[in-house]
Design a protein around this nucleic acid. Sequence first.
DNA 1: AAAGATCACGTTAGCGCTAACGTTGTTTTC
DNA 2: GAAAACAACGTTAGCGCTAACGTGATCTTT
Lengths: 348, 348
Amino acid sequence: MTRRTPVGIRDIGDALGLSMMSVSRALRGVEGVSAGTRIEVIQAAKRMGYRPNRNARSLASAHSTLIGVSIPSLFSDVFPEILDGMRATFDHAGFDTLIDTTHYNTAREADWAERMLDWNAAALVLCGVDHEPDLRRRLRDLRIPTLEFWDTTDDPIDVCVGIDHWKAGADLAEHLLACGYTRPAFIGVPEGRDTRADKRLAGLVATYASAGIDAVDVRRIDHRATFEAGALATESLLAAEGPRPDVLAYLNDHMAFGGLSTCMRLGLSIPDAIGIAGFNDLEINKILPMPITTIITPRTRMGEIGARNIIARIKGAVVERCVTIPTELRIGHTTRAPLSSGGPFSSN
Amino acid sequence: MTRRTPVGIRDIGDALGLSMMSVSRALRGVEGVSAGTRIEVIQAAKRMGYRPNRNARSLASAHSTLIGVSIPSLFSDVFPEILDGMRATFDHAGFDTLIDTTHYNTAREADWAERMLDWNAAALVLCGVDHEPDLRRRLRDLRIPTLEFWDTTDDPIDVCVGIDHWKAGADLAEHLLACGYTRPAFIGVPEGRDTRADKRLAGLVATYASAGIDAVDVRRIDHRATFEAGALATESLLAAEGPRPDVLAYLNDHMAFGGLSTCMRLGLSIPDAIGIAGFNDLEINKILPMPITTIITPRTRMGEIGARNIIARIKGAVVERCVTIPTELRIGHTTRAPLSSGGPFSSN
DNA sequence: AAAGATCACGTTAGCGCTAACGTTGTTTTC
DNA sequence: GAAAACAACGTTAGCGCTAACGTGATCTTT
């Protein structure tokens, strides 16, 4: 095999009558060389086709430009959007992003994090705030810059940026209550898989409970949170005996659209006979003939803020430990108009 | 900062009275140590909390376990599915996957590839077969194992696995012709951005042309290939003067669903007044009340085959240079029933 | 039973780069 | 104008690991 690096900093130094160290300094942009020498070195490097050996750099300096980012899944638009926000910032700052998908498995995440450390990663970015206790402890002990995103906590491993999922669920419930829906059902994935979704559901349930209302049904389907999963869960839910729910709150907009399709196919009148709510305000919601009532989550911005903060941490700066970005209710056509503020039964 | 690697192979050797080399061999699973010693070393490594320094490994051996994968975008379900297929295989074989998103920019891809080489990547995986000529040449010269996926060519950089996009477009056109649609229009993104989509379109156009039919309209919207882009392009297309198309072929199912929504909102009768066709058979198609006529692409399998082949290449094995996986037409409800096989005008 | 083959290890010499500490000549300071 | 400070370089000594080449003991082979 042709040698990949026919030219190293030694060769540049030889060509210019400089020591390796001066070349190294010039190329890395650190102090200790005159402006003229630096320009010469950079030009020579380009001319000679020099490429740095990143492994050698990392080994010698015990630092790398690798940032490990762990997300549950590449499906759904949520994580790609957050990632896009992050990567733009990381790329610009010269970091390489190494993405892992955990498939909602924290043990896998912990293994992967350890491998990232084997690479001397500059920082780790983890989704959510629920991780293996060992991993938490280890990252803290090592003082590795770590960003947790999407969820929030007042005690992050290092820094975090996210939304308040419980509150988002509660906000949605409050709206549904205001619309007069009194027999809510929830559709999601098995408990413990997506802890953010669990928190949203907890917020929803608690808010309904404080109005004295219990959930009619909670369907958890062991499937990715897809259109189809939403449709399947809705079919089984509507086929169940007992009181029929008057509003269905889904884990996200994709499941909600699956449910919406099912309800329409069954001829249910939406939003009167049954209301539908999603989460995230995903792209599909822009073109639906009947936009879904949902919660808008600031995904790209979250990625940008997170990336900016973690880069600051890498550079040793002090940053806000915990950033919580507000979410916003988006009222679509899949829920009834809210009752007037005069009271829950003042109008219809 | 606590030292990240408090224990190296030297420490294990000291503890066991062995040389570093024996430890290294035992840990890497290469020949040259007895079975008993190997077990001892592995146990000691675990007990002592040994973690390999990947940078040191790469530097010393001039090989790494990093595989760089370049895809245009994480949006749309296409690439995540292919990636999922690949990663399962890569993970299992002990490789770390480093994903880049090029945003359909080949210069960016070339830059990124060069950085992967700086990391001593074991292999590169590139989307499509259209790359910067310099990059092609360089990867060939260096004899870096390289997989091109999604598209095919008889002269790949190294190995490739994909589908025949031109033929997929032609197959679709043949079906649309058989359905009696004679005024086709096409909706996609600007030419040159997504060369696979360009090839599909070429196949479509050529097939219609060989039946003596020109496209009524070709709309290229400068936007990601989203639901919304499909809707917007369809609106502008239907508002245009001149003959109205009787069938709309979209870059993918998401754009097609955007277009379908628009047509339904405008009260057009589907599939009689206007037919709709997509591409990829994306997940949403499972739950649409009116499934879209589309082409099924084998995405997960493509990822698996590609990963398997490139791993074989890394190990120096000889593999099929070019694997073309067949696609399949899926007839939905958005196109008319094909005319009987008696001939194009024998029935209706 | 001598010569070669094989096994299980050890030694040597880096991989390409950088941290830390020189060294030299030129400024600054009071 | 001598001491101190600084700028612009060079030297030394690794980072943690592995390729390549020993070495001595045991096992074949004929």
